[in-house]
């Protein structure tokens, strides 16, 4: 079999995962997209393991690794999402902007009016 097929498929799958992570509003869906990305990686690992005919079968061992870690990660991820849901009341990511510079936005509008009038270098 031509190695390009699994490689291309993995790449596309990975990109779909990326889209999912960046575009989805709900945190759980983001975690699902992460799963997709991990699976793309697994496909690559297996394909290359088969291509290199590795004696150690490192590819497949690593795939097992990723699968277990993915499981652990999804467990923890969901725990965190639950916690967020319980405290913020919403799992949506784009409402969780506590670290943003919101304070700055309010002050900016105040600054702009002052700047226009004074125009003096900050002394």
């Amino acid at each position: 079999m031509h190695l390009a097929y699994p490689a291309v498929l993995a790449a596309l799958l990975f990109s779909v995962g990326v889209y999912g992570v960046l575009a989805r509003r709900n945190a759980v869906l983001v975690l699902m997209s992460v799963e997709l990305m991990l699976n793309a990686v697994n496909l690559n690992l297996v394909a290359f393991d088969a291509w290199l005919r590795d004696a150690l079968h490192a590819g497949q061992a690593l795939t097992l690794f990723t699968i277990t870690i993915a499981a652990a990660e999804i467990g923890l991820g969901l725990a965190i999402v639950l916690l967020v849901f319980r405290t913020r009341g919403t799992p949506d990511i784009d409402r969780l902007t506590a670290l943003g510079d919101r304070v700055a936005e309010r002050q900016n509008s105040a600054d702009d009016s002052v700047d226009a009038s004074k125009g003096q270098a900050v002394s």
């Binding site: 510079d101 900016n108 700047d115 125009g119």
Partner: peptide, 24 residues
Amino acid sequence: GGGARLLGWAVRRAQTGNAQTYLS
């Protein structure tokens, strides 16, 4: 002087707080 402050204001707006924009 004003230009420097404008530059500062522009960079500040990038801090939207939304994790996904940072990731993008």
